[in-house]
Amino acid sequence: MVDKLTRWLPITAISTEHAKFDTQLMQNPDISGVEYQQGELFGYEVKEYLLEKWGRKCAYCGKEGVPLEVEHVVPRNPKRGPKGTDRISNLTLACEECNKAKGNLQPKEWLEKLKQSRRKLDQVRAENLPKILRKLKEPLRDAALMNTTRWVLYDRLKKTGLPVECGTGARTKYNRLRMGLPKTHYFDACCVGESTPENLAIEQEYVQVWTALGRGSRKMCNTDKYGFPVSHRARQKMYFGFMTGDLVVAEVPEGKYAGRWVGRVAVRTSGYFDIKGGTGHRVCQGISHRYMRLLQRADGWQYEKIRIEKGGSGASSPGVNAGASGAV
């Protein structure tokens, strides 16, 4: 992706975000003393990890777009029962209302109260609480993955011959909040690294989003649940000018799927294809190839153009990092 951009655009430097998590500190906040994380980015790493893990919404009621607080599932000062810790395995995110409602109750105590309540909100909380308890036991596998791959990315970017700057997710978030920009991948890309200017002039109205889809699998045989072959794929990929993964638009004049459909096509030898939406689910099936028009060949990538969400401060001094937070 970087090679494509450097061929098309006059890029002179690269700023890349290295998602770095201190897993030891997450598991044991006292490992190196209080001074370990104090500074202008104090607390950002743990909070950013929690936001990613819990989907940037209240874990109890599912509210989005509201201020979220770090919540101890097993309370630190319980009325009775075991005392909770500050470890990442005991932390989640909650809105102020849910945080106050739970208070210093143990999870099982609160669950019993929620089950007895007839409020719809409490029923949602009672449904989510067991899921939270199960998720707390998940290991820090995703954090470890980012820690082990970030320097491979750095080495490959260095081979482009351009100067490469490394920035953490905490630095990106700090820069974005300082300028009052919304949480999006493209605004994150503008805020990667220490070289981010004091002010940004963002005049574009649209942004391209590239998503890596892959080129399918090498599996040539479909199997049943026991692993025995039930069918074999044909070697031919192209049928009636289309192949699986092509982006198409279909104008269906009549029938159950009458209307205009846009998505990725799944071809068949009969000439009647299926169309899948952005999430991979089938939106219509059995559509004749005669009603379809090719928009983009399947090359392992999906290219989209979306309108930039306006918001935050776009000041007079121009400067945009040639990096890609969440894209590289």
Rank of each mutant, 00 (worst) to 15 (best):
R87E: 11
R87H: 09
R87I: 05
R87G: 12
I88V: 15
N90D: 09
N90M: 03
L91Y: 08
T92K: 00
L93Y: 03
A94D: 08
C95K: 11
E96Q: 11
C98T: 01
N99D: 10
N99E: 04
K100N: 10
K100F: 13
K100A: 12
K100W: 12
A101F: 05
A101H: 06
A101V: 01
K102E: 13
K102D: 09
K102Y: 08
N104A: 08
N104Q: 11
L105P: 00
L105F: 13
L105T: 07
Q106M: 11
K108F: 12
W110D: 11
W110T: 00
L111F: 06
L111P: 06
L111A: 05
E112R: 09
E112S: 11
K113H: 06
L114A: 01
Q116R: 14
Q116E: 15
Q116M: 14
Q116F: 07
Q116K: 10
R118I: 10
R118L: 11
R118D: 14
R119M: 00
R119S: 06
R119H: 02
R119I: 00
K120C: 01
D122C: 01
Q123A: 15
Q123I: 06
Q123R: 14
Q123T: 06
V124W: 00
V124N: 02
V124D: 04
V124P: 02
R125D: 00
R125K: 07
A126F: 02
A126T: 06
A126C: 07
A126Y: 02
A126R: 06
E127Q: 13
E127W: 09
L129F: 02
L129D: 04
P130C: 01
I132F: 05
R134C: 02
R134Q: 12
K135N: 13
E138H: 12
E138T: 15
E138Y: 07
P139R: 09
L140V: 02
L140F: 09
R141N: 14
R141Q: 08
A143L: 05
L145C: 12
M146L: 15
T148E: 12
T148Q: 13
R150M: 11
R150Y: 14
R150F: 15
R150S: 10
R150E: 14
W151G: 02
L153G: 04
Y154P: 01
D155P: 00
D155Q: 08
D155R: 10
D155W: 11
R156N: 13
L157Q: 02
K158S: 03
K158I: 12
K158D: 04
K159N: 09
K159L: 15
T160Y: 00
T160R: 01
G161N: 03
G161T: 03
L162N: 03
P163R: 03
P163I: 04
P163G: 04
V164P: 02
V164G: 03
V164H: 00
E165D: 04
E165R: 03
E165F: 13
C166D: 15
C166M: 15
T168Q: 06
T168R: 08
T168C: 09
G169H: 03
A170F: 05
A170S: 13
K173V: 10
K173R: 08
Y174V: 01
N175V: 06
N175D: 07
L177T: 08
R178D: 10
R178P: 00
R178T: 12
R178V: 04
R178Q: 10
R178G: 05
M179V: 15
